[in-house]
Design a protein around this nucleic acid. Structure first.
Lengths: 138, 138
DNA sequence: TGTAGGGCCTCTAGTCACTAGAGCATCAAG
DNA sequence: CTTGATGCTCTAGTGACTAGAGGCCCTACA
């Protein structure tokens, strides 16, 4: 039996975040001790570990809710989980592509700058004028 | 002179977003016509273009506010803008690195799956157990 | 047994960058 | 003169938390 603070330390999820997950129905309500404090068992630990890992992988809480509702069902239907995971993979890949273009553009922009020697700042004008961009980000 | 709708179409920034930028002091308050409707000139167009471009590059509105306050000052001090842009570049690069690790992990996870033929779902167990991860994401 | 301090409780409100909707006024075209 | 699009303000909602107030509880130590 862990207190919320012990659970927090063990999983790296902050105490108010754990309570928030409970509030939105992502974590089941744990038992309470005589003084109305939350007491978690191994299952609570595992559920929170699942959420934490999935959040690290960029899944939304909504996606996680769906996956958790599927988990533990008789003859778990993997196809929905698979669909969610693949959608997430595609989203991540798209984000990478976009960010790489942005990095290129930012690199170009920062190299324009003479580091504050005064005069007009090319960084600012580059930011102000999309037409100067090498690539078609955004 | 443009209406807010024309400005929106020209820049691709939605009408409520333009009003929001004005509300938080990012865009100067434009003039109004007899019927209290906003009327923008070329300067408004340019300011919004600057914001839009910088947002596309991932700058926060706070960063943009600083950059805009620097812009137009006598002997613009480029160093602050440069610092912001470089910090932004570093942040973008870090995000790319992280996302690449996530993509690898997601790829690994989705490939575990037999597409819903029943039985226990390895995607779910992979998500539940960080120890299964190949890399040290998150 | 008393007490000090941490941890825990609920509740409200704030964050960022918008987005949606209500309910009304105004504008431009026919 | 009417109609429908566009505009106005205001409030509230989004996601995923985070911060703070004001109080209760638990544990360790004297």
């Amino acid at each position: 039996m862990f207190s919320i603070g012990q659970l927090s330390k063990a999983t790296g999820v902050k105490v108010p975040t754990i309570r928030y997950y409970e509030e939105i129905g992502l974590l089941p309500q744990p038992g309470r001790n005589a003084g109305n404090q939350r007491r978690y068992g191994q299952d609570g630990m595992e559920a929170l570990g699942f959420i934490r890992h999935a959040r690290d992988l960029g899944f939304s809480l909504e996606d996680i809710k769906v996956m958790m509702s599927i988990e533990g069902q008789l003859g778990e239907d993997c196809s929905e989980v698979h669909r969610i995971a693949e959608a997430q993979l595609n989203a991540v890949r798209a984000r990478i592509t976009r960010l790489e273009r942005l990095a290129g553009e930012l690199e170009r922009i920062t190299h324009l700058c003479g580091h504050g020697q005064g005069g007009d700042c090319k960084v600012l004008s580059a930011l102000g004028d999309h037409g100067q961009c090498g690539s078609d980000h955004g």
